[in-house]
Every structure is written in structure tokens, then in C-alpha cells.
Nucleic acid binder design. Sequence first.
DNA 1: ACCAGGTATGCGAGTTGTGCATGCTACCCA
DNA 2: TGGGTAGCATGCACAACTCGCATACCTGGT
Lengths: 311, 311
Amino acid sequence: MGDVSTGSLAAFLEVARLGSFTSAAQTLGYTQSAISRQISALEGAMGGGPLFDRLPRGVRLTEAGRALMPYAEAAVERVDAARHELNALRELTGGRLRVGAFPTAGAELLPCAVTLFRSRYPEVKLRTEENLTRVQLARLDTDELDLAVVSDTAGDPLDSYELHHLVDESMYVALPDEHPLARRRQVRLVELADDDWISGSPQPERSLLHAAIGETFRPRVVHVVAEWIAKQGYVAAGLGVALIPALAADCVRPDVRLVAVHEDDVPARAVYAATPQGRSPSPAVEAFLGTLRAAIDGMAAQSRLSGKSAK
Amino acid sequence: MGDVSTGSLAAFLEVARLGSFTSAAQTLGYTQSAISRQISALEGAMGGGPLFDRLPRGVRLTEAGRALMPYAEAAVERVDAARHELNALRELTGGRLRVGAFPTAGAELLPCAVTLFRSRYPEVKLRTEENLTRVQLARLDTDELDLAVVSDTAGDPLDSYELHHLVDESMYVALPDEHPLARRRQVRLVELADDDWISGSPQPERSLLHAAIGETFRPRVVHVVAEWIAKQGYVAAGLGVALIPALAADCVRPDVRLVAVHEDDVPARAVYAATPQGRSPSPAVEAFLGTLRAAIDGMAAQSRLSGKSAK
DNA sequence: ACCAGGTATGCGAGTTGTGCATGCTACCCA
DNA sequence: TGGGTAGCATGCACAACTCGCATACCTGGT
């Protein structure tokens, strides 16, 4: 039993609508003979029975033809709908994008990128979620996330993902306004070896500080605070100092001072957009990468972000 | 934008299921190269974007491919379902048949045919309705009926329908048991010119009697009774005589006698199965014609039906 | 460095689809 | 009653497509 193409089905429907091979041929841009043969082929593919009664003036559906009609309509409609859907995915006038980001990215980078993306592609349904990097990678694997904004801080195995480098963010220390070093443009960490530290983890190895630990410096973590807004509070109260990445540097309360850390003490932290490996990124993912870059450029122009948004 | 065939869609689905062109080619009985080209063509027909990521070991769906999947499944399923449906119509393992019949046919002919049809083709949904011939023709026109069992008694315009001759039924007079002619094998109508007549219409022209009216005979209609069971009652009570067609002759009460009418007085009435003109009859209609003929043969073997079930 | 498993592609042959011209049938109208 | 006409079917030649074969190419594992 032969093959059926949308062409034959469309011809069938047009003939059924117009009641004539000849006029259907005209509206479809074929000759009458082509239509005649297409219908004949379709009749063959459908088991052999005639779909039309050939009358002296045109044709009319047989019982079988009438029965076929809804199926043919549905099949053609599905293929058309598929074309539209794929087109929407390609033209970014539809579809869905699920983005994850680590917490600090939520301060400025992600809101900025989301706003930009929404204004450019309002019909793409964009969802974001904040996760630890480790969780995000898992969700990329299980196809619950299309793109994840991650940093390589925690030493998670990023190498089995497609990485799109976004920016290298330098580090700052947050100092209370009255701290002796609060007016400096740059500090070395050894200068803060005797201060109390505020960190996201009791073991500094598992926090932002991990890259700073060396022979000459091991911070004394006195307060364990995860939220950046709370860290600010502790710092402002003079309870200690904290390391914070450039991405979070723009939303700082006026009684907290940020001072750059020397690059040799804490290397700039790379921020990537990660996507599943070996999978060609969808247009929506590509577009979001673009808006992420645009967001970083925009932020670099007006902020302390180091601006090394190379690529 | 090109054409899409069920073949390409089936190939697409099989590749998606197995994750490899090669293995899909094996299960479908094609070569790997054919599958590769079919997918390539499908990608073209769907707008150009890739549907699969080509990995070193096999392929995996892209976002677009994942989006296409449900549409492809639906389209293929619809075409398959259509094939099954049409096959059911052809093999009489499905579908529907709407039959109409004039009242007298409901006495024996239709029940017999319906029983036969149901036992042979139990999966065809058979509906019957009793109508005047005039109504039935209208319902054939409006496609509310597939086949109508009619007689040409009433002079309705049968000529614009496809007529399948079933039988010529001769006519009988129903006489009360004590009627002087009740033991005859045949009568002439003039012999009954002085009797009271029972008919379905006050004007004998519009009833079974219309063919009997001539120079020498005009019946005096005294009782107007439509239902055959009631006519029997009137006749049995000695209130008159009635003309009845052979099709109804088998269900007569014992105190009513039937006597054949001479053929010259009332010509045998032709009974047809009528179908819409110019329309090739569906297999179900053909089959019902067959069972009608079988029913008539069966009845002729054991009844007064004249048996001229010619063709 | 080679092999294994997979996809892409050039090539030739067979098949299918298309258009043109023509044949055929039934209706319409004079 | 006989041409005219509208419409489908079909023979034919040609173009386009599809398929299989052989082979090139890529990548990961040994």
C-alpha cells in the first residue's frame, strides 16, 4: 500500500471542496491531468476504492471519500501546524525557554537580560529559576533547563557542557564605612588576615573564598551568612568583612564600601552560560546568549563590572 | 516549501525512537542513505532547521525535532486511521447504513433482510425507518438515507434515482371468510364492484386501487383505514373487502381469506430498492441489496409471493 | 595509528510525477 | 436529432525524484 503525501491530501480536499478536478487544478497551479493522477494514486494508497464518483459535470465524494475527509483535513492541518510551530521556534515568535542562574546573577545580570529578551521576543515564554550551580547542571542533563548561567567557583565538573564565556568578574571586599581600608582603591588579602570574615560556608574552601586561601592567608570565618542582603547588614554593623563578586557590586547600601581585591589574591571568576553538550542550541538559546552579552555590555558601561566580556 | 509524505514522517519517528539512521533504516527496510536523505528532505520541507543533532554515535532530536514529534505522530496516525476506516467500509466491518422502506415492506421483507444482514455483517450499524415513498425519495436527496425500498404505486417520480428491481408483487383481495368468493383461486374485480371497499385513502386514485380503476370498475370506498392490521379487522367483521399486496400476504388472520386478483385488473406492482443516481453504491448498500434479494428468495419459497424476483 | 560505528554524498538506474495532446462520455441546446 | 461543450481518463515523452551502492568523512576507543 503506497505512500500518502500532503500534496495528494491537499488535492483531495480541494477537489472535494470545488467538486471538480479541473477547477481544483487551477487553484492549485496544476493541470487537470496531474490532479486526476494524484487522486487516482490516493485511491490506490487508500485501498483501491474510488473516493469520487465521476459525474458528467465534475465529481462528487463517494461514501468512502466522505469518510476520508475529516482524516485528510486533520492530517494536513497537523503538518501545517507543525510548520508554523517550527517556524515560530526559528523566528522566536513562540516556544519556550527555561533558564537557570546562580543566585548572584539574579541581582543584576539576569533581570537585565530577561527584560531585554522579553522586549525583543515577547512571544517566547521565558522562565527562569535560581539554583546552585550543581543543581543546574543536573537539570540541564535531565532536560529541565535549556541554559544555565554558572560560575566555576565551586569546582563543579563543567567540562561536559557547552560553555559560552560571558565575563570574568573580579572580586571585591565589602568593608564597613569606618574600616581603616575603606577608602583604598585596592587591597591585598593579607591586610585583612586579622579581620572577622562573613562567608556563605563555615569552611572557606567551599565558598567564594576558596580561591583566596593560600600560605599567607586563611580567613577566620565568624559569621555564616548566605544571602547577600544579610551579609551587607553584618558588614555595615561592623561585624566583619566579606568577599563579594563584581556581579553583585551594584546593589550595595551606602554605609558599606567596596574595595577591589588584588588580582593575584583572588583570580577573576569566570561566568559562563552552559548548555548541554553536542546539542545544537535552539534559536531561543542563541538569542538569550545574545541578550546576556548585551546585558553585560550595558552593565559594564555603568558599573564596577570589570568589563572583560571577551569572546 | 516542499511536500511531506507519510514515509518521511514515519522515518522521522523511527529515527527519533531508535536514535540512529542506520537502525531505523534496518527496521524500515531501507538503506541508511535513503533515511539520511529522507530526513534531510523533511528538514527542508519543515523550513530548513535541523531536526536531529548528528552526534558521533547516532543522532538526537533537536528542540525543533522534539517539537515536531507530536505533530508527526498525529499526522501519521490520522492517515493510518483513515486507511482502517476505509477498509472497514469496504470489508463491511464498520460504517453505517441507513435504510428506508414503505410500510408494507416492514411486514416481512425488511425484518427478514435486516436479520440476514445483521448476522452477516454484525459490525455495520444498520438503521431502518418506515416512510411514505415520497418522503423517502426526499431523504435520499438530502443524503439522510442510503437506500430506500419503494414501490411505484403512487406514481412518484422514481426515474431520477438508481432503481434496483427486487420483485413484482401481485395483488390479492382480502375477503371475509363467509364471502361468496372466498373459496375462489382468482377473481376479477368487476365481481366485487358492488362490495364495500376498505382503502388507505378516500380517493381510490391515491391508494393501492389506483391501477385497478377503469371503465368497468370504480370501487366504493366506505372505510378509510391505513394500517393493515386494522384493515384485517374490518374485513373479518364483514364490513368490506380490501386490496392488499403480496408482500403483506403472509401475516393474515385465519378468518380472512386472500384471493388472487386477475393480472389484467391490477398489474403486479414493482418493488425497487432506490439509491441516489449517479453515485456508485457503497459496499454496504451493495450488500444490503444482496440480502434483500436473498430475503425475497427465502420468502418466495414459502409464501404467496409471486417469486418473480427477476433482475 | 588504526579500527569501529555512525552520517553525508557523488553517481547511476529505476520509478514516479508532470504537462501536453487527445480520446471519451454525457449533458445542453438548437 | 445532431453538434457543441464541459469534464475526466489516458498515451506519451520528459523532467524530477528516490533508491541503493560505494565511498568519504568524522569521532571516540583501543
